[in-house]
Nucleic acid binder design. Sequence first.
DNA 1: AAAGCAAAAAGTGCATGCAATTGCCCGTCA
DNA 2: TGACGGGCAATTGCATGCACTTTTTGCTTT
Lengths: 234, 234
Amino acid sequence: MSGKRNLIRSGTTVDQMVRAIGDRIVTGFLRPGEKLDEASLAARFDVSRTPVREALGQLSAMGLVERRPNRGAIVAVVTQEHLASMFESMAELEGICARFCAERMTAGERRALEVEHQASARLVRLGAEEDYEYFNTEFHTRLYRGAHSTHISELTVMTRSRLAPFRRAQFMLPGRLAKSWQEHDAIVTAIMRGDGAAAGKAARDHVSIVSEASAVFAAGDPASRKADSIGLSS
Amino acid sequence: MSGKRNLIRSGTTVDQMVRAIGDRIVTGFLRPGEKLDEASLAARFDVSRTPVREALGQLSAMGLVERRPNRGAIVAVVTQEHLASMFESMAELEGICARFCAERMTAGERRALEVEHQASARLVRLGAEEDYEYFNTEFHTRLYRGAHSTHISELTVMTRSRLAPFRRAQFMLPGRLAKSWQEHDAIVTAIMRGDGAAAGKAARDHVSIVSEASAVFAAGDPASRKADSIGLSS
DNA sequence: AAAGCAAAAAGTGCATGCAATTGCCCGTCA
DNA sequence: TGACGGGCAATTGCATGCACTTTTTGCTTT
């Protein structure tokens, strides 16, 4: 082939492709419904079609892309109904994580959670959306890990990535930052008290609110919006 | 290549391979830790290595197999800790499904559940383990579907398959059939009453008991038990 | 002008081949 | 005897090629 790949190879080529394509989906660069052409992707990342195919297969197993036999792959497009079901699941999963956190987090984990959470108040005052978004991810990851249940964490993280494309605009709603912080506060407080039930409920409510915000967004931005192929082509 | 595949092709070859290999793992024909050699599998199913590789990739994404770069794939071997975590998740997931069932099942679904459940009492009296096992699967599937939440169903089904290899011997314990039926009865009764909380608890308890039985089994049958390669070789 | 059809173009699915990596065997040396 | 290492066999990882399916295009027919 033409040029060798001299990128930093973290894992195998396939793994890189899974991450590369997965990222573009999760970050919204590739939009639901968009066609994923094997040859274009292969050219775009300078590999042959084989690893691209394998990556698409794995992403399909993860639910991020949809494969239609002999008809190519597209970024998974979910119905409103399925979307609602995913948010619902997410609420339950986060609820479970929060409950487990309240019951199981070590003293160190509790302290770290609290400290980070308090520190983030500053970001809210500053209205630093970008930074808050980063913190927000950290916060939730902390909850998943704090549950001390690898499988629940896996399920939650997976569901979270599948929802990511639809959750993009949530922080663009006015006052969302402060609201989010307060919801986090309720979760943290309950966890610090060791009150599993309350922590669970707070986490479920938190997701539900995000869900509603996203539903509005998703409704106004139907996936049917045809985006063109993945760049490069030009 | 030598002979063409004249099996009934449900989907693509890769899909078949995923099912074929996945089944063998789930049913325990391939045991945790067992090596999955690409060439052997390809020969065994009379396909080239490519679809086998893709299938292994997808199974890996599903968590059923473990892939070590350049070092082949093995049937996923889980630590006792991870196993416990999966059963714990399973209990929570089934609990959620049962709760949703209590709240959302249609009249028809409730009736069907009840009828089937009552019919299965006969299998218990007869001690028909095989048939009861089949019914048992049906019963749980009914719960997953009755939750009317596609995503929760997906997560639950997926977790269930990952646990399947470790749950096989549960019905060999004496008196297990009757016990299982009673547990099912508690779930059904709560669902019929529309009592979500009770249904959830009953389902969680049901899984927990299975979990304990399986843990005993798994402990006495460590995954380290080396099984030889997948037949064919002879 | 619209509908139908045929042939070409595009794109997917799988097989095969070759390079690269790993594991193993055996000889060498301390 | 045991540790080290060089070469060989086995196996994985990826690229390429060809067959087959779907889609598109452009012609024909009414």
